[in-house]
Design a binder for these strands. Structure first.
Lengths: 365, 365
DNA sequence: GAGATTCTGTTAAACGTTTTACAGTTAATC
DNA sequence: GATTAACTGTAAAACGTTTAACAGAATCTC
């Protein structure tokens, strides 16, 4: 018995039909008589026939590959998106080929080039910076694609799916302010990334409008340990802030790490708002209050947009989809009582500071 | 100007050579004169030529796809493996096409079939149960592959990469026993999965040899919330154990969730050993002592084995690779002092139980 | 300097599908 | 009962590569 995989010709021979008929049975492009179809099925089964997608794609020009390029699969946020996309794609008989750029623009370019050489039917990309890889521009009106997350909203070269990052920042800031916090610092990975700049902007504006000045924003990078070190060093050189808003899930980890290292308790010593909503955030004694991105919805919308494009072709204006983040309230934000006025409080009673927490009410500079 | 992508023929025409020469320039299979090569490069550049991998694969039979099938990308453990594999593969110019089985055997079969139709050069699979999909057996000596993680070690249909799960269980149990714990329960997702059964076995044996009876093992499933509910219910109907060993990363989350929900403090009220080592485990005030799987090494070894197979062909016995887990000691295990003898202690002084922790020393049933 | 060898390039035949053009049969219409 | 239309199947030509077979020129060997 030959080791070679059976081809459509073998099936045709065994079933006593032409290759075209076999093709039609499998692709369903033309109707085939019931008995014949059954014969073909049987023959294929007997031979263990499997269609060769390379040949199929070559001839038809169409194909069933969705290319997905994300900064890093280790980041649960992106992994979740890929996972959802893969599931959705599979339901419609697409396969997903995945690559990561590791937040490196030249890697991004080269990965993108590789992905493109598969002539995918569609592309979902989370760019690693706001400046899009050149390869993308080349194919932008030949290839259905959608840009997700790391996109400046004005950036209309293709459909986009993002969250309202300004709002996300505002939500967090407002929550803190409503609970009496005034002494707030922001932690972010790279403030040059479009969504992050917007989150910072949203939070800062709100804080500034209450407090009279914009909060300090710390850049912690996108590595947990390195970020923890930076934040830890900062903590040592500065008075403990009343609250910190982490604007990224890895930043959240960095902040938490540094805080733990200094044995600073949450929320009694300082309050924390986390970003993204993962299982581990609630699996602790003081659950983390967090800004939740609707990650499943992001993936679904990206898929919707993409399928629409794939059906309709490129003739249609690029359209942005903006989803809303929400606040999951747990226990990491302290409710400041009237006897513990915020430092800028204009109206609070002159009661004494909370015992043993004098450092809490110092100004951050 | 035509919208059609330029083919090798267009490049050949522009460069004034044959298509074969162009092919040789790009594949490097035959040497090409320097000037000519430069010409071809220029022409390709000018036209924006990109090789069509489908055509290439069809003709050559060879290809550069690695298929990866894992239970679920949402699980950071698997995502990390995929991420590493993708990086390693890319360095050698392979692309990764990824699919997940969602721990469902029929999905696994159907995904596998789809992956196989790409005629990949290699396959890395984390099976979702110990019974391997039939499709795998069909191709086992035609397709280089390596089985990772969820594999019974005896299962020698192909190269395997696993950790020593018995040892992993033992490590955790021994750590607890050495610190005076005797009242230990095990938490696991599905004890039918090969590696989990072994972890349970390892831990149980060690505990039994100290304590005289095997510890209770709870099945929490592979969904965090559902598992938390199960464990929470169990906690209500049973005395609080002195320590719990989670033998899976999602189980860890379930246990922690339930414990937090009941406001049971770690390690003062009960000790916990976590499984896998993630950033969030140290980003808390009481860092989690955890059994760490060498996930990067697992991925690297899998890749090594796979490339070896791809080069050598199938002629060689299937070989298991077993790596070792290690214990990362942090703060979630209480050091029982001599005045708090373990319940079965035969030699401890008859001192009184720790104040307010009477429930701690009750037997689990 | 004749024959063998090595280089370097070309021609043309694959690879396994899909699809166009066509043909034969049957059903529908007038 | 002739003409059309609708079905259902086939033959053969693609699709864009790679590669076996070949060929011409240059180099080597004796």
């Amino acid at each position: 018995m030959s080791r070679r995989k059976p081809s459509i010709r073998d099936v045709a021979a065994l079933a006593g039909v032409s290759t075209a008929t076999v093709s039609n049975v499998f692709s369903g492009r033309k109707p085939v008589n019931d008995d014949l179809r059954e014969n073909v099925r049987k023959a294929a089964e007997a031979l263990g026939y499997q269609i060769d997608r390379a040949a199929s794609q070559l001839r038809s020009g169409r194909n069933r590959i969705i290319a997905v390029l994300v900064p890093d699969l280790i980041d649960t946020f992106f992994a979740t998106i890929v996972s959802r996309l893969e599931t959705l794609a599979f339901e419609q008989d697409y396969d997903v080929i995945v690559a990561s750029s590791h937040d490196n623009r030249s890697v991004e370019s080269s990965r993108l080039k590789a992905l493109l050489s598969w002539r995918p039917a569609g592309l979902v990309i989370v760019p690693c910076s706001h400046v899009l890889p050149a390869e993308l521009l080349d194919v932008k009106d030949r290839l259905p694609m959608v840009l997700v997350d790391r996109v400046s909203t004005g950036n209309a070269i293709a459909d986009t799916v993002t969250i309202d990052n300004i709002d996300a920042g505002e939500i967090a800031a407002r929550h803190l302010l409503e609970r009496g916090h005034r002494d707030i610092v922001l932690a972010v990975s790279h403030s040059s990334f479009p969504p992050l700049a917007e989150r910072v902007e949203g939070a800062s504006k709100v804080v500034a409008s209450y407090v009279g000045r914009r909060p300090r924003a710390l850049e912690l990078g996108s590595n947990v340990a390195a970020g923890a070190k930076i934040f830890s060093d900062w903590l040592e050189r500065n008075p403990l802030p009343g609250a910190v808003i982490a604007l990224t899930n890895v930043t959240t980890l960095s902040v938490l790490s540094a805080l733990a290292q200094h044995r600073i308790e949450i929320p009694s010593k300082t309050s924390v708002i986390a970003f993204d909503d993962y299982a581990w955030m609630s699996a602790r004694n003081t659950g983390l209050t967090a800004v939740r991105q609707p990650v499943d919805d992001i993936a679904s919308m990206a898929w919707n947009r993409l399928t629409l494009r794939m059906e309709e072709g490129a003739r249609r204006r690029a359209e942005p989809t903006v989803l809303n983040a929400s606040l999951v309230i747990r226990a990491s934000v302290k409710e400041l009582s009237p006897s513990e006025p915020a430092e800028f409080g204009k109206d609070g009673p002159p009661g004494e500071a909370a015992p043993g927490r004098g450092e809490d009410v110092k100004k951050i500079h």
